[in-house]
Computed example of a mutant assay.
Amino acid sequence: MLIYNAEIHTMDAQGVIPCGWIETVEGRIKALGEGTPEDIPVDSIDAEGGMLLPGFIDAHTHLGIIEDSLDFEGDDCNESTDPFTPQMRAIDGINPFDRCFEEARMRGITAVASSPGSSNACGGEIAAIKTFGRRIDDMLIKNCGIKFALGENPKNVYNGREETPVTRMAITALIREGLYKARRYVHDMDSYYSDSENYDPPEYDIKCEALMPLLDRKIKAFFHCHRADDICTAMRISKEFGLDPVIVHGTEGQLIADIIAAEGVPVICGPLICDRCKPEMKGLELKNASLLHESGVKIAICTDHTVIPIQYLPLSAQAAVKGGLRFGEALRTLTVCPAEILGIDDVTGSLKEEKDADLQLYRKGDNPLDLMSEPVLVMIGGNICRREL
């Protein structure tokens, strides 16, 4: 497939190609360049000067794991019978036939991170997935991290059950205990493999097994936290155990933006277009993303779907623009930045040779973040999911 006569926003070192073309073969980008190709096959698409950019990525959702129009029957987000459940895997709870996947595709959202919830101090394994497909195994890009939660959510859930944890101290202690056990488990396993005659293998522990890639920094630690003090706790725990952390929400990040920047920790900001529904969100302001970016923090914008319906991801970035974020950077918060934060930038997030053909096209003059704009072409892994030209 060849798309030509397009204003290509590569979100890569090439920047913007004012008038260019892109060729896809077998689901990947084969080549792209400036000008008009000499040979234009009959099945090619004339972009008519429209904006071509990577598909949007929502770096924090509960897409498919909390299903549309259903209550308990379709909510598989929180295994709240145990406050520490790293062994839970989002891919085992996602329904790819949830109609919100279609709504995501129609708005140019080609990939998301679908996460277990924040009822538990540790909720489980996060899946980075494409929004096109019928079987989650085929949609999976990678299992990209472990979800932790600090603050009011675990406190409220377990206080209502009259169980631990009911304080921030207890939440942190549970996380620390689980990580320490996993670190010791790894040590005992290494001892066995290096000297099986003198050491026995540790008894199988599914929780420790789930945390091993985290301790090896093969996947990241995603910390749900709104308050500035909780953000600092997340960074402290990460230092203690050598984790690769990501802050999810970071509502009060603006209060310590310089500290977060100095630690080199990225923040997934959002939801933005919502009410301040609980005390720890009282500091919610549209300028948060802009202030974090200006301080040198890598940011992405998220909907936290189903909190904000996923099709309003571009509008959420537009809200951040109203809060002071530059338009070009807002596009990055939905493309290359979330890809880098999720560790899937080798596959998607920018338009570059050999990457997956995840892209979207808008008519000339349309603003891709505007509420009234919709892509006229959406392609996911080379599959045309929407075409209106």
Results as ranks from 00 to 15, higher is better:
Val307Ala: 12
Gly324Cys: 05
Asp275Gln: 12
Pro271Gln: 09
Asp358Glu: 08
Cys274Thr: 15
Ser350Pro: 01
Gly283Asn: 14
Glu353Ala: 15
Gly323Ala: 11
Thr303Trp: 08
Gly349Gln: 09
Asn288Arg: 09
Ala339Gly: 11
Val321Ile: 07
Leu359Ala: 05
Lys282Ile: 14
Val307Leu: 12
Thr303Asp: 04
Ala319Thr: 08
Val321Thr: 05
Gly323Leu: 11
Thr348Arg: 02
Ala317Ser: 08
Glu353Lys: 15
Glu354Arg: 15
Leu315Asp: 01
Gln318Ala: 14
Pro271Ile: 13
Pro338Phe: 03
Val347Lys: 15
Ile301Gly: 04
Pro314Glu: 07
Val307Asp: 10
Glu353Phe: 05
Ile310Cys: 08
Met281Trp: 11
Pro279Lys: 12
Ser295Thr: 04
Phe327His: 15
Cys274Arg: 11
Leu325Asn: 01
Ala319Asp: 04
Arg326Phe: 06
Gln311Arg: 15
Gln311Val: 06
Ser295Gln: 09
Ala357Val: 09
Cys274Pro: 01
Gln311Phe: 13
Ile301Arg: 02
Leu351Val: 12
Ile310Ser: 02
Leu342Ile: 08
Glu354Asn: 15
Glu294Phe: 08
Asp275Pro: 04
Thr335Ala: 07
Gly343Ser: 12
Asp358Gln: 08
Ala300Asp: 01
Lys278Arg: 15
Ala357His: 00
Val321Gly: 02
Ser350Trp: 00
Ala300Ser: 10
Glu294Asn: 15
Thr335Lys: 03
Val347Tyr: 11
Ala319Val: 09
Val336Gln: 00
Leu331Gly: 02
Leu315Tyr: 00
Asp304Val: 01
Thr348Asn: 08
Lys322Thr: 10
Arg326Cys: 03
Lys278Phe: 13
Ala339Phe: 04
Glu294Val: 00
Arg332Ile: 00
Ala317Val: 06
Thr306His: 13
Cys274Ala: 14
Phe327Asp: 06
Lys278His: 14
Pro309Arg: 14
Cys302Arg: 01
Leu359Cys: 10
Asp345Met: 00
Leu292Ala: 07
Ala357Gln: 05
Glu329Gly: 00
Pro314Val: 06
Pro309Phe: 06
Leu342Asp: 02
Ala300Thr: 01
Glu294Gln: 15
Asp358Lys: 01
Leu292Ser: 05
Lys352Ala: 13
Arg332Asp: 13
Ala357Leu: 08
Lys278Met: 15
Ile310His: 07
Lys322Asn: 10
Ser316Trp: 06
Pro338Cys: 09
Gly324Lys: 05
Ala300Arg: 03
Leu272Pro: 00
Lys278Asn: 12
Arg326Asp: 14
Glu354Pro: 07
Ala317Met: 09
Ile308Glu: 08
Asp304Gln: 06
Gly296Cys: 11
Glu280Met: 07
Thr303His: 05
Thr333Lys: 00
Gly296Glu: 11
Ser295Met: 06
Ala317His: 00
Asp275Val: 11
Leu286Asn: 09
Asp358Trp: 00
Asp356Phe: 09
Lys298Tyr: 04
Pro338Leu: 09
Leu286Asp: 05
Ala339Glu: 03
Leu331Asp: 07
Lys352Gly: 00
Cys277His: 15
Glu353Met: 13
Val321Gln: 05
Ser350Gly: 10
Lys298Phe: 04
Lys352His: 13
Lys322Ile: 05
